[in-house]
């Protein structure tokens, strides 16, 4: 089963990398970008075929390691 965990910075946490990317887009002439926040995507292959089990496993992985919940939120999806 394929799954994806997306980790993003919480609202209000300063994101200097996102700001730099935002500035670069502007200097490249990409018009209409109001703001950029960067994050991480983890594509994970899971053994077995039980989506509920997979979701529990992904949450465990995110809480234990993939995200630092002091500053980051995460979202898990079982893609199928």
């Amino acid at each position: 089963m394929k799954a994806r965990v997306t980790v993003t910075l919480k609202t209000g946490i300063l994101d200097p990398q996102g700001k730099a990317i935002e500035g670069a887009l502007r200097s490249l002439g990409v018009e209409g970008v109001a703001s950029v926040r960067q994050g991480k995507v983890f594509d994970i292959e899971i053994e077995g075929a039980d989506p509920a089990k997979a979701e529990a496993l992904l949450k465990q992985a995110a809480d234990k390691l993939l995200a630092n919940t002091v500053i980051e939120n995460y979202r898990v999806e079982v893609v199928g």
Binding site: I13, L14, P16, N68, V70
Partner: peptide, 16 residues
């Protein structure tokens, strides 16, 4: 900080 022995996080330096 990552281990929970101290609170908070060390983020990328403000000026990158």
């Amino acid at each position: 900080c990552e281990s929970g022995l101290l609170p908070g996080v060390l983020m990328r330096n403000g000026q990158l």
